[in-house]
Amino acid sequence: MKNIIVHLNKTFDHRVRLGIMSILMVNDWVDFKTLKEMLEVTDGRLASHIKALEAEAFIEVRKQFLGRKPNTSYSATVSGRKAFNDHLDALEKLLKMRD
């Protein structure tokens, strides 16, 4: 039992972080506004969770200008993808175990 728990990644132990990673797994680059609309969270909460994922190098940030407006997009890194997949595998294993 303990063995499997270890594989559940603490960084993903939150709905918003799981949400961010889920979206970034199936899209190349996603901007802040789209993430916000999809996850239905406030700017501040989204920013703090993004920071946490960024600190683990699970996502990378790209800042650019669209015309005059600054636009920040995010993408999952290779290590982020691997960590997220491991996390999902661990979740699946937990579900397959007998009660």
Binding site: R15, L18, G19, N27, V30, T34, M38, L94, L95, D99
Partner: peptide, 24 residues
């Protein structure tokens, strides 16, 4: 089913729904 399992199931279905909604 334990509460924990139900929680994990909900998490997985939420992940699947987000992946689908954000890409298609």
């Amino acid at each position: 089913m334990t509460q924990n399992k139900q929680h994990h199931l909900n998490t997985l279905s939420e992940i699947r729904s987000l992946m689908e909604r954000s890409s298609r």
